[in-house]
């Protein structure tokens, strides 16, 4: 239980995890569910219980598609996607913790890849 990290995540995300009624609609709706170690409803539960480290180590934060389906369909307006982004930021704001490094870009480049893809990957995966 990491109180400091928990408070940081809650503040950055603006999410009130206590509003969650544990219905699991976020995870029922998530298009990346099968690729995730921890699922949207678990983000809410684990942040609530302060289990942030496990989330920071998990692949889930890089798998979230930021499609906002969980935000749109949550009956309690919990916004799980905001929590996932806050955990992702908590990781990449550490020194040398960028998930995507500039030197990796050229090998991923494709003829048709739009600039938008590169810019957004940078925004989401590095600081």
């Amino acid at each position: 239980m990491d109180k400091f990290l928990q408070e940081q995540i809650l503040r950055m995300s603006g999410v009130n995890t206590r509003k969650c009624m544990k219905c699991g609609k976020c995870s029922g709706t998530c298009p990346a569910y099968d690729e995730m170690e921890y699922h949207p409803h678990q983000f809410v539960a684990m942040v609530e219980s302060g289990d942030i480290d496990a989330l920071m180590q998990s692949n889930s934060i890089w798998t979230c598609l930021s499609c906002f389906a969980c935000v749109e369909r949550c009956p309690r307006s919990v916004e799980p996607a905001n929590l996932i982004e806050a955990v992702r930021l908590a990781v990449i704001r550490q020194q040398n913790a960028n998930h995507l490094k500039a030197q990796e870009i050229p090998e991923n480049l494709e003829e048709k890849l739009p600039q938008q893809a590169i810019v957004s990957a940078f925004r989401k995966y590095s600081k």
């Binding site: 609609k25 976020c26 029922g28």
Partner: peptide, 27 residues
């Protein structure tokens, strides 16, 4: 099933019900 349906789609005349099973931790 302890969980909620997120989306209903269709394929070949069937409804595809996508939902979470929270106890089995499955979609």
């Amino acid at each position: 099933i302890k969980g909620m349906v997120g989306k209903v789609t269709d394929k070949d005349g069937k409804l595809i019900v996508q939902g979470s099973d929270l106890l089995e931790n499955k979609q």
